[in-house]
Simulated assay, not measured.
Amino acid sequence: MDFRLTEDQRALRKGVRELLARLFDREALRAAVDAPSLDRELWRELGAAGFFALRLPEEEGGVGLGLPEAVLLFEEAGRVLLPGPLVATHVAAGSVPGAAEGAVVVTDASEGLVPWLDEADVVLGEVEGAVRLRSVDPLTPLHRVPGREHRADLVAVLLTAAEQVGSAGRTTETAVSYAREREQFGQVIGGFQAVKHLCAGMLVRSELARVAVRGAAVTGDPVEIAGAKLLADEAATGNARDCLQVYGGMGFTWEADVHLHLKRAWVRARLRLPAARAEEVVAANL
């Protein structure tokens, strides 16, 4: 089986990257951090571009593509830290009127931890007794529904893993770029063996997770999806930490974006199929 991207898939990824560069660049990211709220105009533009309707059949007004293509979209969303309940709205596009077009924002309360509850037009699941949490990620407001068991939709798990992969890839690129520019002791820090090892390790993590996520998108196997989520969470959090190390003290300042990737990775790792449950799924099938 050939797992390489097709020409159409590469064109889709390129188009989405260009779209997000126009709709949500670094200036928009920092503005969202300073004043966190869901940008409804951005949501509608994503809907118009087919972001939420990607997997709907063409006869239902969708794009007619599959899960492997959706994974590519969500990798790109993870690269730029696109905020909002993207996964829940995408998954609900076929059942909630207006979700496919970006006219309706959907969040999911079936797992106990609920992102963007106050901004959502439709909430899937019961939210009685929901308690607001202080989220570590300034771009992901959270509520918790007490006593709710974690029940994760497999497609939602995989798309969340794809976002983690996109973030892991972005922090790898960021670390390498900084290592080529920052100088200490008369040479760029990318020439130091320790920094080379950090960057190489980041590349290995992100590529291993990317292969696992894309492979699981093709097979749809629940165990492979659980394994992909584990690897993607490790790649996103581990790479963000190592990127901070490459940056040194600068990486820990509010002006740098590295800490935003780490905080989002922490939240995503808890939102769907946390590590302990994913490990149980994988272990039970060994």
Rank of each mutant, 00 (worst) to 15 (best):
A212N: 09
V63R: 13
G94W: 04
G147E: 00
L67Y: 00
L86K: 07
A275V: 09
E27W: 04
R10L: 14
A265D: 01
V218T: 06
A152T: 15
T171M: 07
D39K: 07
S167I: 00
H90S: 11
E173R: 15
E18Q: 14
A120D: 02
V258R: 02
G94A: 14
G169L: 10
H259K: 13
L198H: 03
A232N: 13
E224R: 10
V213K: 13
P85F: 04
L56F: 10
L244Y: 07
A120F: 01
W266N: 08
E58N: 02
G238I: 04
T89A: 13
R40W: 03
V71C: 08
L23G: 04
F252L: 13
A99Y: 09
S177Q: 12
T160V: 01
A130P: 02
G166L: 10
E149D: 12
L154H: 04
E280C: 09
L273E: 11
V258K: 01
A49N: 01
T219M: 11
E207N: 11
F185S: 15
P36H: 06
A179Q: 00
L86T: 04
A200I: 12
A99Q: 09
A31G: 08
V188N: 06
L29N: 08
V195D: 09
L67M: 05
Q9V: 08
L19I: 08
E224D: 12
E111S: 09
A236L: 01
N239V: 01
F252I: 02
V87S: 10
E207G: 05
A31C: 12
G166Q: 06
V71A: 12
R40P: 02
V106W: 02
V123M: 02
A269W: 06
T253R: 11
L82M: 04
E128I: 07
P68L: 11
G78F: 00
L19C: 12
K14I: 05
F3L: 15
V246M: 08
D221T: 07
A130M: 03
K14F: 02
R40G: 07
G251W: 08
G15L: 13
F3M: 13
E128A: 14
L142Q: 10
Y247Q: 11
T160N: 14
M250H: 02
E279G: 04
L117K: 01
V127I: 09
A48H: 11
G66Q: 05
S206G: 00
V105Y: 02
H143R: 06
T237W: 03
G15C: 12
E173W: 13
L159P: 05
V105T: 07
G166Y: 07
M202D: 00
A99E: 03
W266P: 00
N239I: 07
D39L: 10
E60A: 15
Q245L: 15
V105P: 00
T107W: 03
A77E: 04
A93Y: 05
G129R: 09
L244D: 10
S110D: 08
L262V: 05
P83E: 09
P36I: 11
D25A: 15
E45W: 02
A212I: 10
V188I: 14
E128V: 13
A283E: 07
H90A: 14
R44N: 04
S37A: 15
